[in-house]
Amino acid sequence: QQTAFGSGQVDPDQPVEVESDELKVSETDGTAEFLGNVVIVQGEMRLAAPRVLVVYDEEGERIKRLEATGGVTLVSGEDAAEAQRADYDIDGGQVVMTGDVLLVQGKSTLESQRMVVDLNGGTAQMEGRVRTILNQKKD
């Protein structure tokens, strides 16, 4: 069953590369805050935002969770989604985007207030007065 979002090769164990202009690390609570043109790449998926908070697991080696805010763009395969904020639970394999969510899939776009992408199940669910244009195939 094709995944509804992205190209479906996203594997939570793949390495996550993060680039940004600035980095602030906080030893005490095991988090790192990337600021300025932050780009996060994991396999086919690419996430960009002005500010990303990365939360590591207790041992401090693997990233458990990402919180991207200030206008997020998420691209995976041919699909792209924008929102004000995105929370990526890497172990759960779930991205929750909130605030003026806009999902573009090929010719059709969907807008809503909240979107939950299940990377394992390959489904995406949008809520909160969703609006979409059903693209017309002109015969």
Binding site: Q1, A4, A124, V130, T132, Q136
Partner: peptide, 28 residues
């Protein structure tokens, strides 16, 4: 009017590449 049809709903699922399912006072 030949314009595209617009769909509005409370909840929309995307299943696979080509299926969109909408629920909750759906309007087209």
């Amino acid at each position: 009017d030949d314009g595209p049809a617009m769909l509005v709903a409370d909840r929309v699922w995307l299943e696979g590449r080509s299926r969109v399912t909408a629920e909750g006072s759906v309007e087209v």
